[in-house]
Amino acid sequence: MKTAPFALAVGLAVLSLVGCGEKAAAPGAKEGAAKKIVVCLLPKKKGVPYFTSCSEGAMEAAKELGNVELIYDGPTSGDAADAVKLIDQWTAQGVDVIAVSPNDPDVLAPAMKRAREAGIKVITWDADAAPDTREFLVNQATPEEIGNSLVDAMAKDLGGDAAKGEVAIVTASLTAANQNEWIKFMKARLPKYPGLNLVATKPSNEDQKLAFSVTQDLMKAYPGLKGVFAISSVAFPGAAEAIKQAGKTGEVVVTGLSTPNDMRSYVEQGVVKSVILWNTKDLGYLTVFAARALVDGDLKAGATTLMAGRLGEKAVVGDNVMLGGTIAFTKENIGQYDF
């Protein structure tokens, strides 16, 4: 006779077990610098070292500001549909800022627009989406900086200002927009080092094996080849492997953009002397400061600078907040980085 009330009690007990455990997050109040705000940081994929490193910088910034509650969450599968669900959920919660690194800008666009319609500030970081889906982009590095850093690193690896020798570029595909921008600025930078002579630009079509064979061919075709710029994430290890297997470690150097973990073994073996990347921790750090400034009204259309804690004053160009600055991972410092 008492089964049903008992069952009800059990049901509620089970649910309250599900329900309790953590404090309910106070929905962030809008306006006012002293008010605590909720900032959601969405990576392309949660659990990969690159984004974890970004999130560490973001947490540091949230701690330093003291008035930012940071939520770092993203699809562990890297699935854009899961990212959409998260954005919708944050929209329904009425958070203050959603900072998106879109893994698929087209899929995320409707959700980002829904968030904006609900009065939430949406920015992008790490990668951009359509301009009508976000207010600002926190831009890790300009093509010019990347181009310059690559050329400077190559020159340094080949002996500094007096660097001499033939160099070649192994790019992604000949139509890849990012890479073509970088190449443009690399070509503009090369005259700074008159000893360096660009002899070829070859595509590898995002194929590591092709990058491997293209690099082999380059070494055969240009016996005086001293350096290779391998400027896609798959071309870089492909080119490094080709040089290693040809026994030309130290004779031909290769440089490019990558994370320390991906290229660590080549750096330790000496095949690669410099790996170029922007500072991922600073990227997360700056994103949180930009979010705070956006809510406070310090970052708005027409702004030209942004004060970002330990990073100091950062430039705002149009709707881009510029992080700027790249780091070179070398044999000496790569041990300090784990991502």
């Binding site: 049901g11 509620l12 089970v14 649910l15 309250s16 599900v18 329900g19 309790c20 309910a24 929905p27 329904a92 919660q93 009425g94």
Partner: peptide
Amino acid sequence: AGLVLVAGVLEPRF
């Protein structure tokens, strides 16, 4: 019903 109840208490906006 239990879930909605618990959710309503913990997260009114939900």
